[in-house]
Amino acid sequence: MSEPSLPALDDAWAIFGASSGLAREFARHAARHNRPLILAGRDVEDLELDGRDLVLRAAPAVRTMKFDALDPAAAAQAAGTLDAALPGRFNVLIAFGVLGSQAEIEADPALAQEIISTNAGAAIALMLALAPLMERRQGGRLVVVGSVAGDRVRASNLVYGASKAALAGACGPLRARLARSNVTLTLSKPGPLDTAMTFGLARGLPLASAADCARDLWQAAQTGKPVRYFPAIWRWIMLVIRLLPGPVFHRLKF
């Protein structure tokens, strides 16, 4: 990608899992707001195409980097790269994740490890690796993509829900710690979005647009909202669901 001069990267957004539907739309928002971008993911060749798109949409500079969440060295390497490339304040979106099929996981429980490692393990490791960098720069936005599924874990979505619950658990104390250095942490909790992750799941499931979610999340990040449900109605739905007594909740079929 175009090799940017360093000052141009001020207030950049580093996006992890940049090929995901939500991340791609979020990056387009950042580009529209003239922010430099660093796109991180497994398919770097494809991220180069996103890079060309974002430059034409007004991003002043875009770089890509390889990031494989399941590589134990990935978090430290990413932190090193960002530290070198971004001397000023920067922002981070952590958007990678896998859904997995609960039926397949029950047939082969070892699959649970991979899903939880990706969604929770790798994401938390990355947050912890990047936190000191952001603290040193005394500012920036950290945005983490969680899920309404983590608010109360359902049997039909046990592993994914548990991974997002763990991620949400880590966000609380980290948010408090980062706040002392003027860094905000926004946990995004979208309902099902119309992305590659949900493509082909049960029909009739109302899917919200990833572009709308990204726009909403961009605004939430700018004002440092701690938690953002999307669509907003999920906040109230999940409030009710969290209040259901266990014996009632676990008898529900969904």
Partner: peptide, 9 residues
């Protein structure tokens, strides 16, 4: 519809 990127102008 998801392969919708601008490439060059």
């Amino acid at each position: 519809t998801r392969l919708d990127r601008l490439l060059d102008f």
